[in-house]
């Protein structure tokens, strides 16, 4: 079972779109996929037609009892695709649990009980360094960092990379990561310049292609389907397919960041 996380400390960069579209492609290739919505806003949960305010059980339940993973998973309308939904109560976890020892490992431990049930698990993180993001980072073997190709988003990425470096430095957990430029608009100078700076600054971990702006993403979320299902030949869907190929092909631009000792 492969566990991927999609994270960035900046919001609106395409995290949920990345998670859902990649999951859609994987499911269409016959892989069984579990999507986990770790964002208290519940965007992904809403995407699949559930109301995070009304769900009786969800990710919050796992923090109460890690052995309940199987019970809280919901089917979706799509073959091979399951959802572990978010609920608004997730927003209270940081307040309730603070920095209690080991509470960053809840999801990692809960996923152990799902070993063999799914081929892929994709965690969609909140845009905030808190207990939920730490859980995702502690559980994943690969991290995807969608970054909007614009100046402010790049600053957010630098912050995120500092967090990642701290986790990797601690030696408690190790993972690979890939930076995915999103919302790329080749007509705008800002996009082109941001992409050029990203290539200079983050060369080795940066995916060598881009996810373009595509109005179809919005439409796909409106109808509650992964874009790969709704419009497989759209530019956006094809871009994510290329990303998936690269991820599955052990891309050479994905470099394992070794524990740095200074």
């Amino acid at each position: 079972m492969h566990i991927w996380a999609v994270a960035n400390q900046k919001g609106g960069v395409g995290k949920t779109t990345t998670a859902v579209t990649l999951a859609g492609h994987l499911a269409q290739r016959g892989k069984s996929v579990l999507l986990i919505d770790m964002d208290p806003h519940g965007s992904m949960t809403t995407y699949f037609g559930h109301d995070p305010d009304c769900l009786e059980q969800g990710l919050y339940t796992l923090f109460q009892n890690t052995s309940q993973a199987k019970e809280v998973i919901l089917p979706t309308n799509f073959e091979n695709l399951s959802l572990l939904p978010a609920s608004t109560a997730l927003a209270t976890l940081d307040r309730q649990l603070g920095a209690q020892e080991g509470k960053g490992l809840v999801i990692k431990n809960a996923l152990k009980s799902l070993e063999g049930e799914f081929d892929y698990v994709i965690l969609d993180c909140p845009p905030l360094l808190g207990i939920l993001m730490v859980n995702a980072l502690a559980a994943c073997e690969h991290l995807l960092l969608p970054v909007q190709t614009e100046f402010l988003a790049m600053k957010g990425l630098e912050r995120m990379l500092r967090t990642i470096t701290m986790i990797l430095k601690s030696g408690r957990h190790s993972f690979d990561y890939t930076i995915v430029p999103t919302m790329f608009d080749r007509r705008t100078r800002a996009s082109l310049e941001a992409l050029r700076s990203m290539r200079e600054q983050f060369g080795t971990e940066l995916w060598d292609s881009v996810i373009p702006v595509d109005t179809q993403f919005r439409e796909a979320s409106r109808v509650g389907k992964p874009l790969s299902v709704m419009a497989a030949s759209s530019r956006g869907a094809r871009a994510y397919e290329a990303l998936l190929d690269r991820l599955l092909g052990q891309a050479d631009n994905v470099r394992h960041l070794q524990l740095v000792t200074s």
Partner: peptide
């Protein structure tokens, strides 16, 4: 703040 936060959350409690 951040390093202590991460360290604590990701520390495996002995009893677990």
């Amino acid at each position: 703040a951040v390093s202590m936060f991460l360290d604590s959350l990701m520390r495996e409690p002995e009893e677990e």
